[in-house]
Amino acid sequence: MTRDVAGIGLGLRYDLATELLERRPKSVAWLEIHPENYIDRGGRYQEMLELAREDWPVVTHGLSTCLGSVEPFDASYLKELGGFLKDLEVPWHSEHLCLGGADDRFFHDLLPLPFTEEAAQIASQRLTEVRDAIGVPLALENASYYAPQGPDGLAEADFVVEVLEKADAKLLLDVNNVYVNGRNFGFDPKAYMDRIPMERVVQIHVAGHFVRDDGLRIDTHGEPVPDDVYELLDYTLRKTGPVPVLLERDNNVPPLDELLSEVDDLWKIYRNATGADVAR
């Protein structure tokens, strides 16, 4: 049976798993995993997932089934992914709106799509195809990008909305990505949020990012969440209502207490903005 995913969650990552699974803090209401790290894998990862599921509902966030590629999907992988998600009883699965590979080669990073009608058409078709194949609701996530778009494309928010509407899809809204893109390319992140159909948002991501000496912001998930991102989260939650919020921390992982302090800050914002009183 699918368990409720609500309130503030944390990404289950190898570097913090031991302490998290020992202490099982009540302030963490749910966990997110990347299925690629667990499919067809035993050992510590299998153990981590089994221990996590004893107490927490789990949602999944894919890294490799990127929605913007032009090659056909690997049907055997989608079948395997669907089986994995079914076993986990996830309420939804999410994938990035980006390009993860070309010519059967994987970037192992999230490269940006051009914000064109053609790319929106392809991404929406692929989203529908994946959703049908895996048999669970699928949300797309807005990605960060560092290279300027061509002059003839759509604005990023319009591109995201176009894909959402064409595919009648759900959205995993990454607040940090909107902030990073806004700062890197000079648009107002709140105006972006105003453009998003908030009824489609099923989950939110927040994270920290790295600021290079030249001012370029890189979405590293390796720094604490900055105040501006907290403020944008507050603005967003007031529009979405109480959708679950995940703190992403993948690199430069600090002691658990530091992360839990951020989780506590997120709870304050969540409760203030939504009025929701969710507990694990």
Partner: peptide
């Protein structure tokens, strides 16, 4: 074209 774009990204990265 997205396909050309993707192949160019692949060549630039690899």
């Amino acid at each position: 074209m997205l396909a050309d774009h993707a192949k160019a990204m692949q060549r630039v990265c690899f």
